[in-house]
């Protein structure tokens, strides 16, 4: 079981929120030690998928296994123990606003280990150095820019040296420089620590540049998967529309609406 090449397996997951069906049978295999990207248009439930993997949401059907453990069958304590082996980088950074940068990174260490204060300090400074923010340790999260927030959050996510790290939209809303910094960091962290990474994103260029394997999700299903090189030449018009960012195609530009001409006429008649 330990040498299973797949670290995370998602099998036939169905999930709906209220009336809205978000997943209709999603299957994913996330290989150990690689960066796997999950891509798809906004609103396709990518973040929801991460929450399902992290055990924060429960699927209506299907199951998620991490290193052989069925996440949603674990008792609460076991689930929390499993989560210690995972790190997650949130879209907004999600730093604790009442703690300084240093304390934010130290948080997981203080909670889960009994390291002496000097050791905690060493580990925190090491992690902060890796993201280039050792000098910002005494700042509060409200004093940081968006890119810096995410870098601190990354330092916090890897503070316990996790085996799996989940990135939720790491590139959204970043200027080109901090985007480049983040891309480099994610790549570097992965190589240095040899961990398994899942990147959820719709920033195609950046994601394809770091991913080893890509899943494209649309309409609650996996639409396509393959290596970045394979996907780039995929003939499926839906895949090619997404990968090459064409505004209109099988995924329509327009929200479903009645015929434009008759709609306008209708309104005139109606008034």
């Amino acid at each position: 079981m330990m040498n299973d090449p797949q670290f995370v397996e998602v099998e036939g997951v169905h999930f709906s929120r209220g009336e809205k069906e978000i997943f209709r049978g999603v299957d994913l295999q996330i290989p150990r030690g690689k960066i796997t990207a999950i891509m798809g248009p906004s609103g396709s439930g990518k973040t929801t998928l991460l929450k399902l993997i992290g055990g924060q949401l429960y699927p209506d059907a299907g199951r998620v296994r991490i290193d052989g453990h069925d996440v949603h069958r674990l008792p609460r304590r076991e689930l929390f123990r499993l989560r210690r082996r995972m790190g997650m980088l949130f879209q907004s950074g999600a730093l604790f606003s009442d703690l300084s940068v240093f304390e934010n990174v130290a948080f997981p260490l203080r909670v889960h280990t009994d390291l002496p204060e000097a050791m905690v300090r060493d580990v925190v400074l090491m992690k902060l150095e890796a993201v280039g923010l050792r000098g910002a340790r005494n700042l509060m999260p409200s004093e940081l820019s968006g890119g810096m927030l995410r870098r601190v959050a990354l330092a916090r996510a890897v503070a316990l040296d996790p085996e799996l790290i989940l990135y939720d939209e790491p590139f959204v809303g970043q200027d080109p420089i901090s985007m480049g910094v983040l891309v480099e960091l994610i790549k570097k962290v992965n190589q240095a620590l040899g961990l398994t990474a899942v990147v959820v994103s719709h920033d195609i260029k950046e994601t394809l540049s770091i991913a080893d394997y890509v899943y494209v999700i649309s309409d609650g299903r996996v639409m396509a998967h393959g290596t970045p090189a394979n996907l780039d030449v995929d003939r499926d018009p839906r895949v090619s529309q997404f990968i090459h960012g064409e505004p209109d195609g099988p995924v329509p530009f327009h929200y479903p609406a009645p015929d434009y001409y008759s709609d306008i006429l209708d309104e005139r008649v109606g008034r």
Binding site: K51, G54, Q56, F80, R81, R83, R84, M86, G87, M88, F90, A94, F96, F107, P108, V111, H112, A153, R156
Partner: peptide
């Protein structure tokens, strides 16, 4: 959510 993911 992030607190939960850290295991707290």
């Amino acid at each position: 959510t992030s607190m939960e993911m850290i295991g707290v």
